[in-house]
Amino acid sequence: MDASELTFDAHGLIPCVVQQYDTGEVLMVAWMNEESVRLTLETGTTWFWSRSRKELWNKGATSGNMQQLRELRVDCDADTLLALVDSPGPACHTGNRTCFFRTLGRADDTSSGKD
Rank of each mutant, 00 (worst) to 15 (best):
T98M: 06
S4G: 13
A83P: 01
D109W: 11
G113A: 13
C16K: 04
L82T: 06
R97M: 05
G60Y: 04
I14D: 00
G89V: 09
D22K: 15
L84R: 06
L27C: 06
V74H: 06
F100S: 05
D86G: 05
E25F: 12
D77G: 09
N65K: 04
H11K: 13
A10P: 07
T7E: 15
D115E: 15
Q68Y: 05
L13S: 01
G95D: 08
V26Y: 05
T46E: 08
A78E: 13
D79F: 13
V17E: 14
G89R: 02
H11Q: 13
I14E: 02
T94W: 06
P88W: 01
A91D: 03
E25P: 09
S36M: 03
R51G: 15
L13Q: 04
K114W: 07
V17A: 15
C92Q: 15
T62N: 11
E42R: 02
L72R: 00
S112R: 11
W31K: 04
E35A: 12
L13Y: 01
A61L: 11
M32Y: 00
K54Q: 15
E5Y: 15
S4V: 10
D108F: 10
C16R: 04
G95E: 10
D109N: 11
V85Y: 04
A107L: 08
A107H: 07
Q19T: 05
L41H: 05
K114H: 09
H11T: 07
V26R: 07
V18Y: 00
C92N: 14
A10C: 08
P90R: 15
Q67M: 03
V85F: 07
T7D: 14
T80W: 04
T94C: 07
A61I: 09
S112M: 09
R51A: 15
T103F: 07
T23N: 06
K54C: 07
W49Y: 14
L56K: 08
N33Q: 09
G113V: 12
T98W: 03
G113W: 12
R73D: 00
V29P: 02
T80K: 06
V17Y: 09
G24C: 13
T43N: 13
V18S: 01
A30E: 04
N96W: 06
H93I: 08
V85R: 02
D2M: 13
C99F: 09
A30F: 04
N58L: 03
A61N: 08
E55L: 10
V37S: 00
S111Y: 13
T103M: 08
P90T: 10
L13I: 01
G24L: 11
C76L: 11
K114M: 09
R106C: 03
T80Q: 12
S4T: 14
